[in-house]
Nucleic acid binder design. Sequence first.
DNA 1: AAATAACTTGAAAGCGCTTCCAAGCTCGGC
DNA 2: GCCGAGCTTGGAAGCGCTTTCAAGTTATTT
Lengths: 340, 340
Amino acid sequence: MKKNLTLDDIAAQADVSRATASRVLNDRPHVRDEVRERVWQVIQETGYKPHPVARSLASQRTGIVGLVIPRTTEGFFTDPYFPHLTQGIAYTCNEHDYIISLFLIQTQEDERKLYPRISQGLLDGVIVQVGAIGDQFIDALLQGSIPSVVAGRPQHHPEASYVDVDNIAGAYNAVMHLLQLGCKRVATITGDMGTTAGLDREEGYRRAIEKRGIPIEPDLIVHGDFTEISGYYGMQRLLPHKPDAVFTGSDTMAMGAIRAIKQADLSVPEDIAIVGYDDLPPARMASPPLTTIRQPIHRFGVKAVEILLDIIENGKEPPRQIVFDTKLIVRESCGSSVGT
Amino acid sequence: MKKNLTLDDIAAQADVSRATASRVLNDRPHVRDEVRERVWQVIQETGYKPHPVARSLASQRTGIVGLVIPRTTEGFFTDPYFPHLTQGIAYTCNEHDYIISLFLIQTQEDERKLYPRISQGLLDGVIVQVGAIGDQFIDALLQGSIPSVVAGRPQHHPEASYVDVDNIAGAYNAVMHLLQLGCKRVATITGDMGTTAGLDREEGYRRAIEKRGIPIEPDLIVHGDFTEISGYYGMQRLLPHKPDAVFTGSDTMAMGAIRAIKQADLSVPEDIAIVGYDDLPPARMASPPLTTIRQPIHRFGVKAVEILLDIIENGKEPPRQIVFDTKLIVRESCGSSVGT
DNA sequence: AAATAACTTGAAAGCGCTTCCAAGCTCGGC
DNA sequence: GCCGAGCTTGGAAGCGCTTTCAAGTTATTT
């Protein structure tokens, strides 16, 4: 195997100095065209590739951004949210020639190790998915100088840059839709109340109910954690209170709820209408197909990267905060007459 | 913001040379206990963290392994396979203090860019998921000197190190189970025939059928691509040929097939028995719950990393090749009397 | 034609760390 | 009390690249 080429080799072969070779390599000005071409020639012929680590050390940028995914709940496997988000992020990184470094936090140990590894020069920036991960980590991140963007709204950090979707409005619209269809006893199975997504979606539910002048009935609110199984059990607890409609904090929980409903020999939407949240592929394939709230997850990921790169270039002030709108997708599970 | 500490600062403060400080930092021998302690003290007090890039440049190892996921089919989102695999890999990497760099190949462009970026010193090793990605890429990888492990059996590279599951045996057992239950017309919806998983699972189907002395009926074999929708359409094409059982190349396709069956007013397993492949969470929650083949995906990911690290340490010869066994999980969709 | 501006180029100083090498020590054995 | 073995230690040479600075060239201005 032939010895790896260095920029010095290229410089020697093209009969210029290393500095000039570097200029050509990086497409910098102040090189005569003739020389520039000569150097390119040598680079092409030899198949030379610059050594990324050396380059990083000298330039103080690595071209790597971190993607931190919090303590892996079952949700990571079940929920297509993460793959979608990751895909949006990866797509945009590829486009801008950045590389992604993935940190799946699984153990307490991982979490401890994380900050030190992240804070010290390997990464140009970090995208953190909010979740079960301690605010403490986000604290540290924001204190530090490394550019960061939060995916989802961080609970106690109004000054952080983040991208989020308007969960309150989304949930509000979902519940309002049910109310307008004539449902009288609309219940909800919330997502994980340790996340802003869970909290906000419950808030949207409350606002819609109150907007119609209906008193909030605590028995009609049960807490889940975004997983199918929590939707299933949530629904079982709800059934004795005779809801005629349920808004669930995720499609996955909606699937669980439907399972429980069918098992109780009731049917969707005749006996109980359902509206989910996410509009990921399974929603369309459910039986009945799910009425749900669509989030632009892909754009979400794209934007997160764009913001991060902006921060890397231009500094973290002012905070960039973007909230995406959601869209109600009406299918059959809500019993709407216009169902597809 | 305080200037970043360097090893020189530590050395100065501890009144030793940089060489000695480095020895202490890396827990190397040949340092007097007293000195070692003094240096540690300074490191602790100052909160010094070594600069990973500088360290990589000097030591010629980065502690980063690449994870390459091929051209992203719809499957990446739908199929919990990838999250599970990723999780197994991440877990093991965390444990060994390696960092994962994720490469999702999405465009032709990405694929072109990939090899150059990978081949040149940023990564200590690479795990490649086989799939729609050109063998050409795996070719290049194997030619080069960078340690690599393939997840799944690469089609034309018997000399590669890989981890795989015994797809042929798995499929064989699935189909044999159906035959033993008395099914007479067992069909199959295969996975993507561009993958060894797809090919091998069909092969297993064929072997089981032939083993029972039944002639292969081409009409009972349709090709899908692991997605729900391909299972749905596949089943629709199968229905006119009156199968009484179907083995699908993935659980996701099984869900699609069930949807098509129900839509034709037939029922599972009474009219048509189904066996899937994967045993991921949705299988358990399907209605009816899916009889399927369980693959140890998590261990699969773990092993891939272990092999890779082994290669990094000890060289790529001889090739490490590991094939995991699968397990038939009997639930209700096959109509077995012992269904849960 | 002289003076000045603008562009090219290479030498050299890092970036922060690892590691080889040689020098200086300590200590036991005879 | 002397010698060599075996530790400790620091100096210095990289790892491969970027970037500053000053010197050398060429083009422009008056």
